[in-house]
Design a protein around this nucleic acid. Structure first.
Length: 501
RNA sequence: UCCUCGGUAGCUCAAUGGCAGAGCAUGCGGCUGUUAACCGCAGGGUUGUAGGUUCGAGUCCUACCCGGGGAGCCA
């Protein structure tokens, strides 16, 4: 493709040349007869210097008038400058203002999450979303490469379904030509049919849950990757899941250095996570959860939260004491630090509330329960890598799970829990193969047998051992990128309280 | 649905029950190498809504509305 302009990303290869950049004004700093235009073009940021003496009146007026997010065409000389982020700047010879933006709402200053989510269509232009979307793209490509290189076939499950898969989640109901239909909560059962036809397949598509969950880990619409493999048992399934995650980690570290830097991600933690994942039997997980080691860890963190609060409060008192005699620029610093301290104090208070609850939950935990969110967090705090907890009590898992031949109370399921409190990013397991067992399970779960007749055909005609899992894309992006909320990991998040933009 | 925290200028936040403020953004002025540039001036408010207590309410009480993150459920 021939362009009459170059991208900021490619400036290094145009050192000393006259080029044209097209983009939007990200920020502007000015002095007399001089503007520093920070241009954004989707590939990166570049500082473009324009001097009144060296350009015509039309170009100078364009630079004078340009406001934040105005669209611009800038022609000039590419010059190496080590002070710049990209290492290069543009000495502008000619500037054209395509459109003058007025009142761009996102100023170069802190904003609250609600305001930013209302402006998501514009917020995507900012640095953090820019880095996040590029990381998302990289992770998506890692997933495709990983599966394609092993001969998997990508095929998608339907989005409209006639019945609930597991009978537990709340689904979105839609009118389907006067019939009830639901938006899919999982392509799992269809994936099994496709695996019986093509061997190894994976789906990659949207999934919908109508749960009223207001947390940093939940979306009502999210993207899920669900591989399904014929002739794979639980151990092979776990190998596949671990291989996928470690591939994602490796590719992100190789390809997304700039993005992870913008996101402020501690890359050393990602490096540590790229090591063999411990595989923990449910019973061992219960023991670890209730161990002295866990209790000491929780006590230690609670103590740390109180210590931190004490230090923050004395710093705050110190600031208030010195505020009156401070110079103006010092007061600005004090104000900023005070806001920061207030936020940290809220974090401390939350930990002080949560940690005793987590401890109580761990103490009260009994073999046979499902692991709750806090229990998972406690377990993962013991490790630097994701952990794979396998063989859960069958009672808390879906009807299609195969039972453990060594302990009929257990199902051959596995959850992969990411470190640093990110929690469950994969759920999966080995599927039941016996027709009569599945019929019994469907009845025991109170599910309509008729809806599963096609699924049961998979056991009537050449039933084989098979396994698979579901990977939550946004949760994975959060973990790799060190994000706080899944809503940052998708361009336009759909939440209980948000359908727009 | 429950628990918990919050709602003050366009944005981020201050304000012992006692004159509603700062920074950023915007406008104007100054400054020829700035890195969220800086300096000066100006405009900008029904303190979420409705009641109540009080000489006096942003602040205390009651109800409601909206939002944050946590439980349940899950990826």
């Amino acid at each position: 493709m021939q362009h009459d302009f170059v991208y900021i990303r490619d400036l290094a290869s145009h050192d000393g040349q006259i080029v044209t950049l097209k983009g939007w004004l990200y920020n502007k700093r000015s002095s007399k007869g001089l503007h520093f235009l920070i241009l954004r073009d989707g590939t990166g940021l570049a500082q473009c210097v324009i001097t009144e003496q060296e350009v015509g009146t039309v170009s100078w007026a364009a630079a004078e008038d340009a406001t934040q997010e105005s669209s611009l065409v800038l022609k000039g000389l590419v010059r190496k400058d080590d002070r710049q982020i990209g290492g290069y700047e543009l000495v502008v010879h000619e500037a054209v203002l395509m459109q003058r933006a007025e009142g761009y709402p996102i100023t170069p200053k802190d904003h609250g999450i609600e305001f930013l989510m209302d402006q998501r269509h514009l917020w995507l232009r900012s640095q953090r979303p820019w880095a996040t979307m590029r990381l998302r793209n990289n992770i998506i490509m890692s997933i495709h490469h990983y599966f394609q290189e092993q001969g998997f076939i990508q095929m998608d499950a339907p989005i409209f379904t006639g019945n609930a898969v597991e009978g537990t989640s709340t689904l979105f109901e839609v009118d389907y030509f006067d019939e009830k239909a639901y938006l899919t909560q999982s392509g799992q059962l269809y994936g099994e049919a496709m695996a019986m036809a093509l061997g190894k397949i994976y789906t990659f598509g949207p999934t919908f849950r109508a749960e009223k969950s207001k947390t940093r880990r939940h979306l009502t619409e999210f993207w899920m990757i669900e591989p399904e493999m014929a002739f794979y048992d639980l151990a092979m399934n776990m190998d596949m899941a671990e291989g996928l995650l470690r591939r994602i980690l490796r590719d992100a570290r190789t390809n997304c250095g700039t993005e992870l830097d913008i996101l402020g991600r501690d890359v050393a933690l990602l490096e540590k996570a790229d090591a063999p994942f411990p595989r923990i039997h449910y019973s061992d997980a219960v023991d670890l959860l209730k161990s002295n080691k866990s209790m000491e860890m929780l006590d230690g963190e609670l103590e740390a939260a109180f210590d931190e609060e004490k230090n923050l409060r004395s710093e705050l008192a110190e600031i208030k004491k010195n505020y009156g005699s401070a110079k103006k620029w010092e007061k600005k610093k004090f104000d900023a630090r005070e806001i920061e301290i207030n936020q940290l104090l809220e974090d401390c208070a939350e930990r002080q509330r949560n940690l005793p609850k987590w401890k109580a939950s761990a103490i009260a935990f009994e073999w046979g329960n499902d692991l709750g969110g806090s229990d998972e967090t406690v377990l993962t705090k013991h490790f630097d890598t994701p952990i794979m907890v396998h063989r859960y009590p069958a009672a808390v898992k879906a009807f299609y799970m195969k039972r453990d031949p060594e302990d009929d109370r257990l199902a051959l399921g596995v959850d992969v829990l990411a470190p640093e409190g990110y929690g469950e990013i994969i759920g999966g397991g080995e599927r039941a193969t016996d027709l009569q067992f599945l019929l019994d399970q469907i009845r025991a779960h109170g599910l309509p047998e008729s809806a599963f007749s096609w699924y049961l055909d998979l056991r009537r005609f050449g039933s084989v051992p098979h396994s698979g899992f579901g990977l939550g894309l946004e949760r994975t992006i959060c973990w790799v990128g060190g994000l706080k909320h899944v809503r940052e990991a998708i361009p336009f998040a759909r939440l209980m309280s948000r359908l727009s933009p």
